[in-house]
Design a protein around this nucleic acid. Structure first.
Lengths: 165, 165
DNA sequence: CACAATTAAATTGTGCACAACTAAGAGGTA
DNA sequence: TACCTCTTAGTTGTGCACAATTTAATTGTG
C-alpha cells in the first residue's frame, strides 16, 4: 500500500502535471495499468478454475458461439495463430477443447468444447458479477467508459492502418 | 479493414448488447485492445530508435529523474525485478544504460543513462505528438479519459488488496 | 491441366508480465 | 557477536503478444 512514485513522470519539477506532451504517456500508461489490474482481478476470480484470463476469453466465445475454426476465434479475440495455437494446445491438454482438421477444408482446424469445457461455464457463472463489483463502477459508468475506450481503439487502429508503409 | 466479428460476444442473438453481465468483459477487452493498439502505435513511432515500448517508458523515467536504483524504477513503472532485470540487461547490451552496484548499499543496483541513452531523448522528441495525433482526441478528452481509467485502476487495485487471502 | 497467388495453422524467436524462489547484504536485538 | 528479519536483485518457469517464416491446402487464371 502507501504511496508509490507517480505512475509516470510529469509531476515533479520541470514539467507540469498537465503538460500536453505527457498526456499520451499518461493515457497509455493508465490503460496498460488498468489492463494489468483487470488481469489481476480475473486471475484471482478464476483461480480455482485453473484458467488464465486469455483462456477464459476464448472459452467465452466458444460458450456463446459454439465450435469454430481457429481463424474465426482469432477474429473474435483479435489474436493470430502465433498466440492461439499454443494457447489452444494448452487448453486441449487441460481437456477443455478438442482440435480437429476440417474435412471440407484441410487447412482449417475446428475448435470444439469438450464436456468438461462446457461444464466450466457453470463454475464461471459468477465471474462477471465479481469483476464488476471490483471496478466500483455502476452500469452507466461501465458502459460509458467502454464506449470511450472503444472509440480510442478505433482511432488508433485507423491511424495504424493509414500511412501503412 | 472491413468488418470483424465483434470484439467480444454479447452482440449476436441470445444476449443483448447491453447485458450488464457482459460489461466487465466488454470493458476489460476494450482496455486490453486499447493497450495493444497503443503498443502498435508506439512500436511504429519508435521503430527507428530500436526501442520497445516498455524500454521507452523506462527511458522516460530516467530522462526525467536521472539515475536511480532498480527498485525505484520499478516503483515508477510498477514492474518488479523479474521484468526489469532482463529488460535492463537488454538495454545495457544496447548501450543505453549502465548498471552498477551501489557502494553504500550493495543490495542496490543503480541504473544510469549512457551518453547514447541520453542522446536518444532528442531522437524521441516528436514521439508524444505523433501518438497524440493518432488518438484523434483533444487535450480535454485525453485528460478525462486518463482520469477515468486511473480511477478504475485504483478501484481494481483496492479490490485486489482487500480480501487478500 | 499446370502454376502462381492466396489462405489457414503451426513454428520459431524475441520480448514482456508475473509468481515463486534464491542469494546476499543491511539492520536490529538479545 | 551471533542471530533473525527484512530488503534488493536476480533467476527460473509459465504464459501471452507479435513478427517472420514455413507447410500444406485451396483458389484463380492462363
Amino acid at each position: 500500500m502507501s504511496s508509490q512514485p507517480d505512475p509516470l513522470p510529469a509531476q515533479s519539477g520541470a514539467v507540469t502535471a498537465d503538460d500536453p506532451l505527457r498526456l499520451d504517456l499518461q493515457l497509455c500508461f493508465a490503460l496498460h495499468a488498468a489492463s494489468r489490474a483487470f488481469g489481476g482481478i480475473y486471475r484471482r476470480v478464476l483461480r480455482d478454475t485453473e484458467l488464465t484470463y486469455p483462456q477464459y476469453l476464448a472459452l467465452l466465445v466458444l460458450w456463446e458461439h459454439g465450435e469454430m475454426p481457429v481463424k474465426q476465434l482469432g477474429e473474435f479475440l483479435r489474436l493470430d495463430s502465433g498466440t492461439l495455437s499454443p494457447l489452444l494446445k494448452r487448453m486441449q491438454s487441460a481437456g477443455l477443447v478438442t482440435r480437429e482438421r476440417s474435412t471440407h477444408d484441410e487447412r482449417s482446424v475446428t475448435v470444439r468444447l469438450t464436456a468438461e469445457g462446457e461444464a466450466l461455464k457453470e463454475q464461471a457463472r459468477e465471474v462477471p458479477l465479481k469483476v464488476i463489483r471490483s471496478t466500483g463502477l455502476d452500469h452507466k459508468e461501465l458502459a460509458d467508459l467502454r464506449s470511450q475506450v472503444q472509440r480510442l481503439t478505433a482511432a488508433l487502429d485507423a491511424a495504424l492502418a493509414d500511412e501503412e508503409d
